[in-house]
Computed example of a mutant assay.
Amino acid sequence: MGYKLNLENMNLALNELKKTYKIYAPKVFVGAGTFSDTDRVRYGEIESFEEIEFDKKSSFSYKETILPTRQTLFFFTEDECKEAEVDERPALIFLRSCEIHSLKRIDDIYLRNGFEDIYYKKMRERAKFVLIGCEKSFENCFCVSMGSNKTDEYNAYIKVDGQDVYLDIKDEEIENIISSIEKEEKEVKPDFVTENPVKVNIPENLSLEVMKSTMWNEYNERCITCGRCNFVCPTCTCFTMQDITYKDNKNAGERRRVWASCHVDGYTDMAGGHSFRKEKAQKMRFKTLHKVYDYKKKWGYHMCVGCGRCDDICPEYISFSTIINKLEDAMNEVKNND
């Protein structure tokens, strides 16, 4: 059902929703930017509607709201092991079309990849999603090329136009919670971007032969393997485990799951001193082909959703969309060499 509300009534609706949900949305963190006098837009719990940042792309994705950067899985002592408790309160998360598509990728990895991760599943089942429309493309986005610019997989849609707020609500529970709020019924359709300034072309003949190309060599010089591109990406799901023991009792502690990155040194280290993909070029090659080649072979669609955050965050100004667009020439190079 579609509705039109004024800002005052939207805040009343938000207050009603807060009684049931923790509400997460992109918001401005003052002074939290790259430099001390700059701000950062990222996801956080909001108290009022005015906190939501609709006009800027968040530097980090919504991912950290359902897949925490650091998560305690269980506690242990000499005698027992106890699973960590999870906040039972459901979450309502504001996100964009490309991010809803990325949610499908995270579900693939944690719920449909031959097992179900119980820790992710508990948080995922308690989450509902409010779509934020995109009237125009942000810098570095290439969602249209990746087919993630449109979606109908949302519980509610929201649009702000001056002092008016437009809602399209599909979820019965959300509908019931705000039923008492004054609003006008109105047909509401989501705004979706139909064109990006940045476009990518993934060659039809892309194969693992591209690994032989010399295109990867430049990233030995340019990439510093900081992992920022992975940590802001809404589809990267890698983690490592940490066993923490307590100072007052070394036989007690906790096991944590912590975000990790295929780019960061040490990620591929194994027992006996073995390690894979030591060169920066190899790490970039692995990430690229995972995003736009082998993932599709298994799931039928690419892992990358074209949000452009990797390009936004890279301190060395490496453009992932440019890497993708180099693949066609790389395939031709390999073919000619053969």
Rank of each mutant, 00 (worst) to 15 (best):
D108W: 01
K150T: 11
S321C: 07
C229N: 03
C229L: 08
I158G: 00
H290Q: 12
P26Y: 07
R255N: 05
T214Y: 01
A156P: 08
G133N: 04
N149P: 01
S275G: 06
I118P: 15
M270T: 12
L14R: 09
G162E: 10
Y301C: 00
I158T: 08
E328A: 13
E47K: 14
S59Q: 13
H290Y: 08
V160C: 06
G273F: 02
E184F: 00
I323M: 15
M1V: 13
E8P: 05
S61E: 02
E125Q: 14
L208I: 10
F49Q: 02
L103N: 11
R89E: 07
V160S: 09
F74S: 01
D269K: 12
H274C: 00
C262W: 04
C238H: 10
N176R: 14
E99P: 03
K22G: 05
T72M: 14
C98T: 10
D329T: 06
E51Q: 14
T151I: 03
Y24D: 02
N220L: 09
R222Q: 11
I323R: 08
E328N: 12
W299E: 09
I66E: 00
D161W: 04
T235N: 06
S180W: 01
F29R: 11
H101T: 11
D265V: 14
I323V: 15
N11Y: 04
E78Y: 09
C310T: 07
E254W: 00
E125R: 13
E333G: 04
K4F: 03
R222N: 04
T214K: 15
M10D: 03
E85A: 13
K247W: 08
R89P: 01
K297I: 13
D265Y: 12
R42N: 11
I244E: 14
Y154L: 07
K247G: 13
S36F: 10
N6R: 09
T38H: 11
F138W: 08
V30Y: 09
D107K: 10
I106N: 07
L67F: 15
P203E: 03
V86C: 04
F29I: 03
T288H: 02
N251A: 11
P315I: 08
T240Y: 03
S319C: 07
Y317M: 11
E316H: 09
L92E: 02
Q71N: 12
F54I: 10
K57E: 15
F35D: 06
D248E: 15
H290N: 13
N155M: 07
A127D: 05
I169G: 01
I46L: 06
C314N: 09
V193Y: 06
T151F: 00
G306S: 08
I52P: 11
I93L: 09
Y62M: 12
R222H: 03
E85Q: 13
C304P: 09
T77D: 14
D243R: 04
Y154E: 04
R105N: 13
E218C: 02
S207G: 03
N325M: 08
M284P: 03
E172G: 09
C233W: 06
S58W: 00
F76V: 13
L95K: 10
E88C: 06
E218D: 12
D294T: 15
Y267W: 11
N9Y: 02
M211T: 14
K287Y: 10
K250P: 12
H290C: 02
Y157T: 01
E85T: 10
L103D: 02
T72I: 13
A271P: 03
Y3F: 15
H263T: 07
A281P: 07
K18E: 09
V232R: 00
L67V: 07
I100H: 03
L12T: 15
E172C: 03
C223K: 07
A330H: 06
